[in-house]
């Protein structure tokens, strides 16, 4: 097995964790559906196909090493998200959405 691009040791006890995103149909967004273990990126795509699209759920799959996702931490919740709670003028609630526009 070749050493991966992260410069980590090529010998590991377990396979790294990947997060899986599936697009249900053309035009929709990829949605996070779960995670899996795989030895490399290509194996992760195959495993994602086997685990998450076996009931006709998707037309496209993204996988990404879980270690590569940068996330907010619960400790930062107030400085990050609380300030938007009381800004009613940021919500475009004053006009009607046409019937023909879904997913808004």
């Amino acid at each position: 097995m070749t050493q991966d691009s992260q410069g980590e040791s090529p010998v590991r006890a377990g396979w790294p964790l990947y997060e899986v995103f599936v697009r249900g149909k053309r035009g929709l967004n990829h949605v996070h559906v779960g995670s899996l273990h795989a030895a490399d990126d290509q194996m992760a795509v195959r495993h994602a196909r086997d685990l998450y699209t076996r009931r006709n759920e998707g037309v496209s799959i993204w996988v990404v090493r879980a270690a590569h996702i940068v996330a907010t931490s619960p400790d930062e919740r107030d400085p990050f998200f609380a300030p938007s709670g009381d800004k009613v003028y940021r919500h475009p609630t004053f006009y009607a959405i046409p019937d023909g526009v879904p997913h808004m």
């Binding site: 249900g24 149909k25 053309r26 929709l28 949605v31 076996r54 009931r55 023909g100």
Partner: peptide, 20 residues
């Protein structure tokens, strides 16, 4: 209607359980 393809099917919030 360019949005029709998005509007059909997939109204089911449980789409992740798969389609027919």
């Amino acid at each position: 209607n360019a949005y029709q393809a998005l509007a059909e099917a997939h109204d089911d919030a449980r789409w992740a359980f798969g389609t027919g």
